[in-house]
Design a protein around this nucleic acid. Sequence first.
DNA 1: CTGGGGAAGGGGCCC
DNA 2: AGGGCCCCTTCCCCA
Length: 266
Amino acid sequence: MPRSFLVKKHFNSAKKPNYGELDNHTVIISPFLYERYPVSVLPQPELYSSVAYSPITVWTGLLHPPLPSDLSPLSGYPSSLGRVSPPPQSDTSSKDHSGSESPISDEEERLQTKLSDSHAIEAEKFQCSLCSKTYSTFSGLAKHKQLHCDAQSRKSFSCKYCEKEYVSLGALKMHIRTHTLPCVCKICGKAFSRPWLLQGHIRTHTGEKPFSCPHCNRAFADRSNLRAHLQTHSDVKKYQCKNCSKTFSRMSLLHKHEESGCCVAH
DNA sequence: CTGGGGAAGGGGCCC
DNA sequence: AGGGCCCCTTCCCCA
């Protein structure tokens, strides 16, 4: 049964994924998750998709239409910042850059030499513009920036589907799941970004509510919802209006209160 | 209109 | 590195 209220309204649809393109991305959920569901509506084991979810599929062009070849996972390195983009096919070999071999490419080395010449004239020490650490040699500064400061201060991994950027490939992969939605409910076909989100969704089919309120008889399928419910038992709510000191059990309620004019009136 | 419940999204942390 | 989990937040619906 369609639950239209579950469909998030996207005010900026340009950034949202095309869910219709996700047919080939499925995830196998352990049958025990379905065990409480009536057998007649459960998918038979042989009907389970044999295409297990793999983050690798993000990069292998299973989406329709195929992704532009120039949008590699590491294509987000902003060359304008003087950082050399890693080879597109060597994303798993990034550790090589920290090995005993030269961690700096020829191109970057030339750039550093060029910069070194000009900087050496201006100062005896090489100072990191980000954390102010100083180094006696430019190579020392370059290594510091490559291994620490640059990587932490600049988001280097760009999403190929939207404008978001991340400091680590792992974070980017996590985010990309929100576009590819590889976890598909076999009961209703709804897709999710992570397996545990799907598990939580399956509880809406099974009716399982493992999180019980210690103060009343209510139970919840989601821990966060229980936490929000516990606020209703509290005399002093967690979220307080800074103007009238009224407290609310949820931030959304506080926001509603503020938008209703309390803050304007004061 | 307000408060609460249900469902879900997403970043961060830990193992 | 990847998966699981935690936590916070948001959205929608309903009483």
